[in-house]
Deep mutational scan, measured.
Amino acid sequence: QVNIAPGSLDKALNQYAAHSGFTLSVDASLTRGKQSNGLHGDYDVESGLQQLLDGSGLQVKPLGNNSWTLEP
């Protein structure tokens, strides 16, 4: 069960990665100043990332080996 409060997208993504045990490689300029609506409930990694990114204009991309990145 994930419980991440709304706020900074950077912070939300870092909390989610730490909670879910995956690696997220992101260029900080992509997420700077963006906000997230947070995340509450049970999600697989990709669904949770998509939910956190909702409205940010960013997309999640798998890199393999439980690693992910973001792209515009």
Rank of each mutant, 00 (worst) to 15 (best):
A17R: 05
S36V: 05
S56P: 01
D44F: 04
H40W: 12
P6L: 04
D27W: 02
S8F: 08
N66F: 07
G57C: 12
G55D: 03
W68P: 05
L13G: 01
Q51Y: 09
A18C: 13
T69D: 06
L30S: 03
I4R: 00
S20A: 15
N65M: 08
L9K: 00
H19F: 13
A18D: 08
Q35K: 13
A5S: 11
N14C: 15
L9F: 01
D44G: 08
V26A: 09
T23G: 07
L63P: 00
N14V: 12
I4F: 02
Q59G: 08
N14P: 02
L49E: 01
G33N: 10
H19W: 12
H19T: 11
S20C: 15
L39P: 01
L52S: 00
Q35N: 10
S8Y: 07
A28K: 11
G64D: 07
N65S: 08
V2K: 03
L24I: 14
G38T: 02
N66I: 00
G21A: 01
G38A: 04
I4G: 03
D27R: 04
L9R: 00
K11R: 13
S20W: 15
N3M: 11
N66C: 09
V26H: 10
Q35L: 14
S56N: 04
N37H: 10
S67Q: 12
V45H: 05
L52E: 00
L39V: 06
L39H: 00
L52F: 00
L49A: 01
R32H: 12
K61E: 01
L13V: 02
L52H: 00
N3A: 09
P6S: 08
Q35Y: 15
N14A: 15
L49W: 06
Q50T: 12
Y43R: 01
Q59D: 09
S67W: 10
G64M: 03
N37W: 08
K11S: 13
S20L: 15
E46H: 11
G64F: 04
L9V: 03
Q1A: 12
I4Y: 03
H40D: 08
W68Q: 05
D10K: 07
H40N: 12
L39T: 03
S67V: 14
L63N: 12
K61N: 05
A17I: 07
T31N: 02
F22W: 00
S67D: 08
I4D: 01
G33R: 05
L24C: 09
N14S: 14
G21F: 06
D54P: 05
G55I: 04
L30D: 04
D42M: 14
A28H: 10
T69V: 12
D10G: 08
K34W: 07
D44H: 06
D42P: 08
A5L: 11
Y16E: 03
L63H: 07
P72G: 07
L49H: 01
G64V: 02
S20Q: 13
S56H: 10
N66K: 06
W68E: 05
G21W: 04
N66L: 05
V2M: 08
G38K: 01
S29D: 12
N14D: 12
G41D: 01
G55F: 03
N66W: 05
W68C: 07
Q51F: 10
S56C: 08
P62Y: 15
A17M: 09
L49R: 00
G33H: 07
S8P: 15
P62T: 10
L53D: 00
Q51T: 12
K34C: 10
D54M: 15
L49G: 01
V60W: 08
H19P: 04
D54C: 15
S20N: 11
L39Q: 02
D27G: 03
L13R: 00
Q51I: 15
S67N: 12
L70V: 13
P62D: 12
P62I: 09
Q1P: 12
H40V: 14
P62M: 12
N65H: 08
L13S: 00
F22E: 05
L52Y: 00
T31H: 00
L58P: 01
G21K: 07
Q50G: 07
D10V: 09
D44S: 11
E71K: 02
T23S: 08
V2I: 11
S36D: 01
L24P: 06
V26F: 15
F22G: 06
E46F: 14
A17C: 09
G21I: 03
G21Q: 07
F22Q: 07
S25A: 11
G21S: 05
L49Q: 02
S25D: 12
L13I: 07
